[in-house]
Nucleic acid binder design. Structure first.
Lengths: 236, 236
DNA sequence: CAGTGGTCTAGACCACCGA
DNA sequence: CGGTGGTCTAGACCACTGG
């Protein structure tokens, strides 16, 4: 009854989740022990254990060995934020994607750049400058430095067909990435290529990707504020 | 050997993770089946199963019933983004937090606001306007509308002691939240209270929180771009 | 059909906590 | 000490995929 196909561990999760989201169990309150839930649902311990473990990874409860399971402090709204390949994003909206390549070249690394890319100061690095368009409107200015050791064929790629992001994903398996999002005004050149005024604020994403043992690339992505935002969702 | 305390499922995860991040197994490639890994590690199937299930939830592999397990397309860099209570954030940096309350009052909802909060147009809602300071410098302008049904005591709270976010978390258990981040210039009033120029771009987070059956609040958080950014990290 | 993953059981041993 | 969670096993049945 009322259950035929939902897995038992999902039913247990739903039970706990509901009690929490209705405020019956508040942050810090104990959640019934595995053995209690075992008897209540008439199932094996492993099943209950799986349910509770998954709730931990979802951030809803906290478990302490020897002590018990407790409702987590929901002091932080946390959610998955995805930074996706711009081409996919545009295509998914059913719009026309295009790119213009302003620059693809070798370049000597400055001291600071070399430090961030993990190469010697003065070593050769790749530098690309690409504008991305959605239905002909510029929506992203991408300035990227690449470690040649991570993607030796970078300069040979045709960035009007494959975005730099995609080329890197395919040639330098991603093991780690960090980014920051900030608001700032565009430089004169950025404004010119994005066809916006210099007083139009932009979202700037600075991203550093690591592939295996080395830093693969360092990118600066400038989105006109009027044409882009990042959205996210949190689900208890 | 080399294993005394790390759980077996973590060893299996590490094994698969390593193959992927070294590029030995590329996106789309098959990962050894449960039974193969079972024999390779000499462990039970449930243990291998747990390892692979966790890798799925981390987005590294994809499983298809009846078919197999495959390395996931890493086409999207995804990471946990946390939007935290500003007071905690400041305290954690070891700085002094303070808040100034500009407005806390009842107000009649406009049609649009009512729609978003899930109350009738013209119904009474709570409205607060709070400036948050870090070491005396304004870092956040918070404009928030609250559904009285979700937090009836909202107007009685002292927002110089408890942030609106925290009050809501404590009185209206969070079940869902959605937000968007954009860049824009501050309004005259925002600029004045944040002590910045009107041409200084800001990160604006618009957040909608849901508690149980109803929308709890609608907030607009304005961060001066020069004093704040959001950072995140992705770990394969 | 054989092989895959999805789920579940009924035990087990351990480390830890609090009384 | 008893109760908690953390891990693990050796089976089991099922639904699905592919040839």
């Amino acid at each position: 009854m009322g259950s035929s196909k939902t897995p038992i561990y999902d039913q247990v999760k739903a039970f706990v989740r509901q009690r929490i989201s209705q405020g019956l169990w508040k942050p810090g309150d104990p959640v019934p022990s595995e053995s209690a839930l075992m008897h209540q649902f008439g199932v094996s311990r492993m099943t209950v254990n799986r349910a509770l473990r998954e709730l931990v990874s979802e951030g809803l409860v906290r478990r302490v060995q020897g002590s018990g399971t407790f409702v987590a402090e929901l002091s932080r709204i946390s959610s998955r934020l995805e930074i996706r390949d711009i081409c996919e994003e545009v295509s998914e909206r059913g719009h026309l994607y295009a790119a213009r390549v302003l620059k693809v070249q070798k370049q000597k690394a400055t001291a600071e750049l070399g430090r961030q890319l993990g190469v010697r100061s003065g070593a050769v690095v790749f530098h690309s400058l690409v504008i991305h368009f959605e239905n002909g409107i510029p929506i992203l200015y991408e300035d990227r430095y690449v470690n040649p050791a991570a993607a030796p064929d970078y300069l040979k790629a045709d960035f009007t067909k494959v975005t730099p992001t995609r080329h890197l994903l395919e040639h330098a398996p991603l093991t780690e990435a960090s980014y920051s999002i900030e608001a700032s005004l565009p430089s004169a050149e950025e404004a010119r290529h994005l066809k916006i005024s210099r007083s139009q604020p932009c979202l700037v994403v600075v991203r550093r990707t690591v592939s295996g043992p080395r830093v693969a690339s360092l990118g600066r992505l400038v989105y006109p504020g009027s044409r882009h935002n990042f959205a996210g969702k949190f689900q208890a």
